[in-house]
């Protein structure tokens, strides 16, 4: 059974992997100090929150939906955490579960509206985005700095790994989420139902799958991931601010698509999203190493990659479809 023919559904993920290796190799040849494990680890450290939120987004996009609220939910989480800890004096042990529950229920609420009232996910999560952003400013217009020792510890702890390199606690959380999500997507009924809905929602219903419950759970999971990313982001920034993670929904969607997930749903891998996040990270790193290139090149390069991957997917999915548009 050992066949080495490349399966069509693997093409995008192979492309992302190849691109990642290529860019890392090119960077290593061009810049001294680029070829090191720590550079790769720093990618993880700087993008831990993006990875977490992108994992949640992957499920949403796999089911054929979209979640525009993720960036705002992150901001709300940082803001709420900061306010409760610094201004109300609550202990982190209470605050963290609370914000996670809040993000989850916000996602579940949006999922319920999307499913039961049949309103486009785009619009519902847009409302969610406005709402969460607005609530941040209801709490405070200014940034709140966090000095709580627990958060500071979480932010500054370096977890050593063999070979003299290190990662942060956030990275451990992100990798745990990634592993759990891979398991969830590929080895549980919930995960397979997500794929089925993305493939054909009506068929999924006819096959007796719990479509409604799954859709609500998908958005709830995305909400949970956003809130968790918000907690990690709070560790990273040590502040709460309504303008945190502005436009992050775009980066997240881009990461998922570059990771090979089809925006129309049904096709993709959670691991691909990991690659997509790393690709975004490494492009940023390259651009900062280059020095003469400015930060906006990141957006342009990501946009071009987005275009290429969407075209690639269009090419792969249009096989046999000769009808004119």
């Amino acid at each position: 059974m050992a066949r080495f023919a490349i399966k069509k559904q693997h093409v995008p993920i192979i492309a992302s992997t190849a691109l990642l290796i290529l860019i890392f190799a090119a960077g290593s040849l061009r810049y001294t100090g680029f070829f090191s494990l720590q550079v790769l680890l720093n990618l993880l450290i700087d993008n831990a929150f993006l990875l977490i939120v992108a994992v949640g987004m992957t499920f949403v996009i796999l089911s054929g939906g979209i979640d525009l609220s993720v960036g705002s939910v992150i901001a709300l989480t940082t803001m709420l955490s900061a306010a409760l800890i610094e201004q109300a004096g609550w202990p982190p042990a209470v605050v963290i579960p609370l914000v996670l529950a809040l993000g989850t229920s916000m996602g579940a609420g949006m999922g319920a509206i999307i499913h039961y009232y049949r309103i486009q996910p785009f619009i519902v999560t847009l409302a969610g985005m406005f709402l969460a952003r607005g609530l941040c400013f209801v709490i405070s217009i200014n940034a709140i700095t966090i000095k709580d020792p627990f958060y500071v510890t979480m932010a500054q702890t370096r977890v050593p790994i063999p070979g003299g390199n290190f990662i942060s606690i956030s990275v451990i959380i992100a990798l745990a989420v990634l592993a759990a999500a891979i398991w969830l997507a590929h080895f549980t009924r919930f995960g397979r139902c997500v794929y089925a809905i993305g493939g054909n929602e009506y068929s999924a219903l006819l096959m007796g799958l719990p479509v409604g419950r799954t859709k609500v759970l998908i958005y709830a999971f995305s909400g949970f991931c956003s809130a968790l990313a918000g907690v990690v982001f709070t560790f990273y920034m040590l502040s709460g601010y309504g303008l945190h993670a502005l436009g992050l929904e775009l980066d997240t969607i881009a990461a998922v698509v570059i990771g090979g997930t089809l925006l129309t749903g049904g096709v993709g891998y959670v691991f691909g999203t990991f690659l997509g996040v790393m690709l975004q990270g490494i492009i940023q790193t390259i651009i900062s190493f280059e020095g003469t290139l400015s930060s906006w090149w990141t957006k342009i390069v990501i946009g071009v990659l987005l275009l290429l991957f969407i075209l690639l997917q269009r090419l792969l999915s249009s096989r046999g479809e000769v009808r004119e548009a």
Partner: peptide
């Protein structure tokens, strides 16, 4: 949605460029 998302992402970069 997907088609215009591309320019939405790239456009800000182009403007800054």
């Amino acid at each position: 949605i997907v088609a215009t998302l591309i320019l939405m992402v790239t456009g800000r970069g182009i403007a800054q460029l």
